[in-house]
């Protein structure tokens, strides 16, 4: 019973689907951020698995940069979220329909 690349790709797809379900059914913006993290992590698993099974470092490099991008996304996103919460006292997605500013 050997674990092949397909096992990892299927796992990554399952995790990606969970993240997509989260993005589509969540209304709280913080929870939406969590779902985004799940999406990024599932892609990382696929990249590192491909890197291992093809003996190539490129996948690990890309996973590394994805982690850096995720970190900066969290910093900026949480800053904007805190700003929005101070002004409107809610982080619900349905309250953001108007573009009044």
């Amino acid at each position: 019973m050997e674990i092949t690349l397909t096992h990892y790709l299927v796992l990554s797809t399952i995790l990606f689907s969970i993240g997509l379900i989260g993005v589509m059914r969540r209304k709280n913006l913080l929870m939406l951020f969590f779902a985004t993290e799940i999406l990024l992590n599932s892609v990382n698993v696929a990249l590192v698995a491909i890197s291992h099974y093809y003996g190539d470092f490129t996948g690990q490099m890309f996973a590394f940069f994805i982690i850096a991008i995720a970190a900066s996304e969290v910093a900026i996103g949480l800053g904007l979220l805190v700003l929005w919460f101070k002004q409107y006292n809610t982080i619900d997605l349905d309250n953001m329909k108007s573009m009044k500013g």
Binding site: N44, I67, A70, V74, A75, L78
Partner: peptide, 26 residues
Amino acid sequence: FFFILGADFMGVVQIIVYSGAVMALY
């Protein structure tokens, strides 16, 4: 998974950056 796949560096970065920095930020 990263440790199983032999990507030790990625595993450590995952723990430090995600579980450490990102989760603390959240």
